[in-house]
Design a protein around this nucleic acid. Structure first.
Lengths: 259, 259
DNA sequence: GAGTACACAGTACATCGTACGGAGTAAGGA
DNA sequence: TCCTTACTCCGTACGATGTACTGTGTACTC
């Protein structure tokens, strides 16, 4: 499988595809039986239902009733298909209008929108690169999210820095949540079963004298996660920290439109 | 390729392997020609030199002068090999002693150690799950890093929260840096070349009236990144934000050992 | 000394992305 | 009008992956 997630192909071609540029649709030959959107939608549906691993050219083609190679007349390769999927997901994100709200409320809304994206489309965190692919979805999302940082007295570069910082937190948090639930699902082990298996060795090897903090804090954290605990705890905690961290910058910049 | 990065195998077996438990080494039969460490080291060397994609069972075996299937007498599967690689990398991290320093200095040191890990072993960000696999390397790392948060008046769970928050920032930052440089290397395009190709369409489609903030801020950010600019800018910016965010929590908790 | 548990090799299979070539179709220029 | 050309769609095929399975020979245990 030569070069999967590299997107090394002609960037102009990929951009034209992302923007559905007419130059990308042919003028001659038989009518097409499908559309790029149909391919992308089928791939997204598959990824939503069965995860990113299920998105193979064969399975997507099967869902559309065509033979695998047919997809290549719509899309240069799988990497570009993934780019298109992500941009489509971006384009369809809900964008709450929070103009007039204080900046913390606005940024919290942005964070929650992105969290919702990753909750609805867990595959998006694996595809997302944080380097926007400059499709219409990315740009619309970027524009919307920058609005939450506008009028705070930040310089342009700082606005981008702050947004990147916020989004990278949400993505890291989503990634952790997804991997945790994937690990739980992969080995169909209940926590009890897991401890029965791993406990004896762990108890022998995790010497509280050698690792006092790790054992104490680790078991406290494990107990907190394991018991009936707010599942979105890490998100709330982290978001509060991120906003506090930005506050030091924003409130120094000048409360022009801070509300 | 059934089930790659799932680590679904027997957790006890994996743990025994991580801790090099004697129960994992056999008592009968011919002497082994290799060791688990030799396999892990070969895999790490390969990953360091050619990236994680080059780490295939065949290539690792080749580097060791054995046939691919031989590796399976040392390691249950590839997923476990990756776990072992990560834990070995954790174990070998430099751990600067910063006791006595103020907490910001201590946490900054932790952040830099992790950044150095990802710089030396870029594959580690792809393997790392933020859910520690409980190997000796993970535990030693956890113990060391918790020490930077000890004596600040934080509850145990908060210590874990803060550390997770800090590490997840470093990892997200490293991921972005790696993907950026990978994208630059993948298509051997210079930035100039890229703009020649993509510029015309982009100029036509990125209407400043439709996306005023995106165009303005995006080009400012792009110019800042493109020109002679501190390459670690995002790290410094983000770290400062993270520490400011934790400060609100830590300094409220009580400056017991804040220095 | 017998039986067992193991190391190591070789072959084989399912799965992946996609290169390649052929058959048929519709638009553009003569 | 017809031929060329550009295109769609299909089928086959290739190299690569992780690893299950099946020997064959070795060294420890009783």
């Amino acid at each position: 499988m030569p070069s999967d997630r590299t997107s090394a192909g002609d960037p102009a071609r990929t951009l034209a595809l992302l923007w559905r540029d007419p130059s990308a649709t042919p003028r001659r030959g038989p009518a097409r039986g499908l559309t790029v959107d149909a391919v992308v939608d089928a791939a997204i549906a598959l990824a939503d239902r069965e995860g990113l691993d299920a998105v193979t050219m064969r399975r997507v083609a099967q869902a559309l009733g065509v033979v695998p190679m047919t997809l290549y007349t719509y899309v240069p390769g799988k990497a570009e298909l993934l780019d298109l999927m992500l941009d489509a997901a971006y384009a369809r994100m809900e964008r709450t209008d929070s103009t007039g709200e204080p900046w913390r409320t606005r940024l919290a809304a942005v964070a929650r929108e992105n969290q919702a994206l990753f909750e609805a489309h867990p595959w998006a965190v694996a595809v997302s690169t944080l380097r926007p692919s400059l499709g219409p979805g990315s740009i619309a999302k970027y524009e919307h999210e920058l609005a939450a940082l506008d009028g705070l007295g930040l310089r342009d570069v700082e606005m981008d820095d702050c947004l990147t910082h916020l989004l990278s937190f949400v993505q890291a948090n989503a990634r952790a949540a997804i991997e945790a639930s994937a690990a739980r699902a992969a080995d169909g082990l209940t926590d009890q079963h897991w401890w029965d298996q791993a406990g004896p060795l762990l108890a022998r090897v995790l010497d509280p004298d050698a690792y006092p903090l790790a054992v104490r804090v680790g078991s406290a954290a494990g107990a907190a996660r394991g018991s009936a605990h707010d599942p979105g705890h890490a998100f709330h905690f982290g978001l509060a920290r991120v906003l506090d961290g930005l506050a030091a910058l924003i409130e120094r910049a000048g409360p022009t439109g801070a509300g």
